[in-house]
Amino acid sequence: MLMRIAYPLLFVLLSVGLPVRAEPLAVIIATANPLNSLTADALKLIYQRKSQMDAEGNRWIPLNLPLPDPLRRGFSLAVFSMLPEEQEDYWNIQYFNGITPPKVMASEEAIVRFVASTTGSIGYVRKQKVDNRVKVLLFITPPTEK
């Protein structure tokens, strides 16, 4: 009886204490977009809104998940080496110059739907959320948040 309680409890305690291995994120665009790959540096510029147009002349519309979402935090660490809240000074300065941060979508499914239907939009979701409505430009592996 004691073991029945002790083993699950030990498992839970160890699980909480150990870092969770981050899942790779797929950076996606619409299937119809002729772009087939993207470098991590180019992705960074798009999400900083410094790169504003794709090769076809369409405006980039980068998409984010909400601030507390673990995928958003992982993406931010992987691409900018900093958490979203550490980028707020940057976005305050951009706002003063009329440039707003990437659009925030409520869920991964919302990102897939928006990317599939909106020219120039780009987002990130877990690999298993990718379907034939979108295509993957690159995979990024978020570091573990400390």
């Binding site: 909400p66 706002y95 925030v104 409520a106 919302a110």
Partner: peptide, 26 residues
């Protein structure tokens, strides 16, 4: 429902619908 961006956040200005207009200041 998909768009988590339409509400006001301090320091981000006030987006006016999907018109592209945003009002803010300091």
């Amino acid at each position: 429902a998909d768009d988590a961006d339409s509400s006001y956040r301090l320091g981000n200005g006030y987006p006016v619908s999907d018109s592209g207009f945003r009002i803010g200041g300091y």
